[in-house]
């Protein structure tokens, strides 16, 4: 059952990602990206990582993709831009193939050298819950977490400054 679901989600993710890359229409491509996010969230659910799945949908599908769509609609991106992309279809498929083969190589390496990868097996049930993730974030990975939050803060301040300056210039 789980394997079947994994194949459905995985196939859907790959298919919609391919469609996203090859589509001419920007809005269709964006919607396909959302589909990919959804399938990825499904895979996370299969891995018992409910929190990550929910965050995946909230942050990527809900917030970032709405912004993407917003920008696409506001800038009125035409299909022409998509057509130039289509000419590079070889490059696209080439890059997909390269990244995919890299992934496979890494997976094989992980199998060959199991000590290189940290696999969490003992806390299988607790693993994906909010409590477990929160505890990990605020104990083992506190420093990366704080650094990431600082980075986000810097990004927010930068965005405010950029937007502010433009308003001042126009006056």
């Amino acid at each position: 059952m789980q394997l079947l679901m994994f194949y459905i989600f995985g196939l859907g993710a790959v298919l919609s990602a391919t469609l996203m890359v090859t589509n001419i229409k920007p809005v269709t491509a964006a919607m396909n990206l959302i589909m990919t996010m959804f399938f990825l969230a499904g895979i996370y659910v299969l891995l018992d990582a409910h929190l990550i799945a929910a965050l995946q949908i909230i942050v990527y599908a809900g917030a970032i993709m709405v912004l993407f769509l917003f920008v696409i609609l506001l800038l009125n991106v035409h299909e022409k831009e998509g057509e130039t992309a289509r000419r590079k279809v070889v490059i696209q498929f080439g890059s997909i193939a390269i990244v995919g083969s890299l992934f496979i190589i890494i997976a094989h390496l992980a199998v060959i050298y199991p000590s290189a990868v940290k696999v969490i097996t003992d806390t299988a049930y607790e693993f994906g819950t909010t409590k477990a993730v929160g505890k990990m974030l605020f104990t083992d990975f506190l420093l990366p977490f704080e650094i990431a939050s600082f980075l986000l803060l810097a990004a927010i301040v930068g965005a405010v400054i950029l937007a502010k300056r433009r308003i001042d210039d126009s006056e």
């Binding site: 959302i34 929910a54 949908i57 909230i58 599908a61 809900g62 709405v66 769509l69």
Partner: peptide, 10 residues
């Protein structure tokens, strides 16, 4: 709930 509420905007 939030995940799906945010999808309504699409």
């Amino acid at each position: 709930v939030f995940a799906f509420a945010s999808l309504a905007s699409f």
